[in-house]
Write a protein that binds this DNA or RNA. Structure first.
Length: 573
RNA sequence: CGGGGAGUGGCGCAGUCCGGUUAGCGCGCCUGCUUUGGGAGCAGGAGGCCGAGAGUUCGAAUCUCUCCUCCCCGACCA
């Protein structure tokens, strides 16, 4: 590509809307242009990088025996009514009617299609196992798109689905995909963490995420440097120290207007860790109250809550419901003296037997000192606590640290959730009908690109890993009036393409400084610089973008066999 | 959805509080001349219904109301 006639609109100034590093660089390097919130035009440089990424993903998927197919993005809404997910995912669905008035939607994901396809074609254990995948656009009307391509309303996903007859076979596919993912990310030049994750509404029996540490990420991961434990913060385990058990009688105290933990602890002059937080929810099924108890200085992880409730739906209780359940306003709730006797109580492990805490009295403006679990109240004990940096690792004596991270991929053991709801059955060798056991494996294509920019960029701009670079080489003839030098540049450019090297030629009439700055910003791995001096001595200067290293290569050597002349700078086949 | 911020040529901004010639600056763009190893210089030029609508006024980018859009934090996020 010749830069003189290219759509690579680089910017000297940083557009005001961009904060994330990758977002700023993508705008400055002319990769993307925003059309509306969460929807970007992918300009040529961006499109090329994405295509490279897709190729890598495709190769690795094919290598594990996964078959590529392609589902429609437009879907009949009934398909989504079948699994109930039209309702569940309502907020993020783009819905519309076709010209006949039929209700349609743009697919935010494709499990329904997999189910529909599997039940149509898979009938026997002889058909299994199989894995299907696609690289497809997804539409999600995100509540808040953000940070350039990190969270958008339409994006490209590679989603794969394994179909197995047994749980052991699911494990095998899960492992194969896990390995393929490692290959994909390392080939794309990314350093990823594999962390235990929350399966969320996807259901299933286990899941892991592939994360890239970066400030612009939306997730937090917990890392223990001494034993290597890694987890998504929302499900991370940690150890905390507990206060001593004491046998002191409960005592009601007047705590006027002290509602929050901070106010209560301050009023009674005790530490927040000596108080107990009571959070009230309503279980949607049956509208029953749920009381969650946790130490005052700690927070509940919603993800752990979902796990504890095994997917049972819940919502924060309304103030009237709280009043009705406890007899007191929010702020004075506790486990003792509740109005209703059908309150389900779940207790975080931070509330240990025998340790006295200050908790709500279920009476306005009163709390109770020395509430003690096992003596005054009890309930199901589960781990609900969100880990914090500085806490002890649950596996060793190390200290946990927390880093921001971006989720690049997620692998799930789905199990039979969709097979059950959509009737995806097969007959086994004993003529017994069984549900297909599924796995599901996703990768955000754009996020690989964003991750590569985030991980490798320096103060001068993007630094593409060779494997996903839009072009491998950029040629910079510095003196537009020097006809001979210009011709050499043209020849090198032609030769590169003949040799299978994707080259960019900066044939614009610009100053050397301008070309250098632009080349660095664009981040093409190799720069071939043709200046007057080196040209006169028959040489081209080769600059490696990543390291800044420079070396000279004779022009005739380069023209003879560019691949050979630049070998060492290209990844080995 | 809660909180905060912003909409003025392609990009970055000033002007708005306190209404008043022709809306200004830098970058980019066009023409010419000079320049050519880290975003060149000079000269000339093109490009704007100041987010939309309604109102107040002799007069609105500026004041009032309504709406729309975008960004950031949070909530949410198979």
């Amino acid at each position: 590509m010749r830069l003189s006639h290219s759509l690579i609109p680089t910017l000297k100034e940083i557009p005001a809307e961009a904060e994330a590093l990758s977002h700023r660089l993508m705008l400055r390097a002319g990769l993307i242009r925003q059309l509306t919130a969460g929807a970007y035009t992918y300009l040529p440089m961006c499109k090329r990088a994405l295509q490279k990424i897709e190729c890598i993903v495709r190769e690795e998927m094919d290598a594990i025996g996964s078959q590529e197919l392609y589902f429609p993005a437009i879907q009949p809404a009934e398909l989504w009514d079948e699994t109930g997910r039209r309702k569940v995912m309502e907020e993020i669905l783009f819905q519309f009617k076709d010209h006949k008035g039929r209700e349609m939607l743009l697919a935010p994901t494709h499990e329904e299609d997999i189910g529909e396809l599997a039940r149509a074609y898979i009938h026997s254990y002889r058909d299994l196992p199989q894995q299907w995948y696609q690289i497809q656009i997804k539409f999600r009307d995100e509540l808040r798109p953000r940070s350039g391509l990190i969270r958008t309303r339409q994006f490209t996903m590679k989603d794969a689905y394994s179909l197995s007859t047994t749980w052991e076979d699911l494990d095998a596919w899960y492992e194969k995909n896990r390995e393929a993912y490692k290959n994909i990310f390392s080939r794309a030049g990314l350093t990823t963490f594999i962390v235990g994750a929350h399966s969320g509404a996807m259901g299933g029996t286990g899941s892991e995420e592939f994360m890239l540490a970066c400030d612009a990420g939306e997730d937090s991961i917990v890392i223990c440097d001494s034993c290597g434990y890694q987890s998504n913060l929302e499900v991370a385990k940690s150890r905390i120290s507990h206060h001593e058990a004491l046998d002191v009688p409960p005592e009601e105290v007047h705590t006027p207007d002290s509602r929050t933990i901070e106010e209560v602890a301050g009023f009674l002059k005790v530490g927040e860790s000596e108080t107990m937080k009571s959070v009230v929810y309503t279980l949607v099924d049956g509208e029953k109250p749920l009381l969650v108890l946790i130490r005052g200085d700690l927070d509940v992880s919603e993800a752990k809550m979902e796990v504890a409730l095994k997917g049972e739906e819940y919502r924060p209780a309304h103030p009237e419901e709280i009043k009705e359940m406890s007899g007191a306003e929010p702020g004075f709730i506790g486990p003792v003296g509740l109005k209703r006797d059908d309150v389900r109580i779940i207790i975080d492990e931070s509330i240990t037997d025998g340790v006295p805490f200050v908790g709500g009295a279920n009476k306005d403006h009163y709390h109770i000192r020395n509430l003690t679990k096992g003596r005054d109240f009890d309930g199901e004990v589960v781990d609900l606590r969100q880990a914090k940096p500085g806490e002890k690792c649950s596996h060793c004596d190390g200290e946990l640290r927390v880093e921001r991270a971006i989720e690049l991929g997620h692998i799930f053991k789905l199990g039979t959730k969709y097979s059950d709801s959509m009737g995806c059955m097969f007959l086994d060798e004993n003529n017994v009908e069984k549900p297909i056991i599924m796995g599901c494996y996703g990768i955000g294509i754009e996020r690989i690109m964003v991750g590569a920019i985030e991980e490798h960029a320096d103060e001068n701009g993007i630094v593409w890993p060779m494997s996903i670079a839009p072009y491998q080489v950029t040629i910079l003839p510095l003196d537009a009036r020097n006809k001979e030098l210009w011709d050499t540049a043209e020849k090198i450019y032609e030769k590169c393409w003949e040799a299978g090297i994707e080259a960019l030629l900066d044939d614009r009439d610009q100053s050397p400084g301008f070309k250098f700055k632009d080349a660095d910003l664009l981040g093409i791995p190799i720069q071939l610089i043709l200046g007057k001096r080196s040209h006169e001595s028959g040489k081209v200067e080769v600059k490696v973008r990543k390291t800044g290293e420079r070396s000279d290569v004779p022009i005739d050597v380069l023209l003879e066999d560019p691949q050979q002349a630049l070998s060492g700078l290209f990844p080995q086949p």
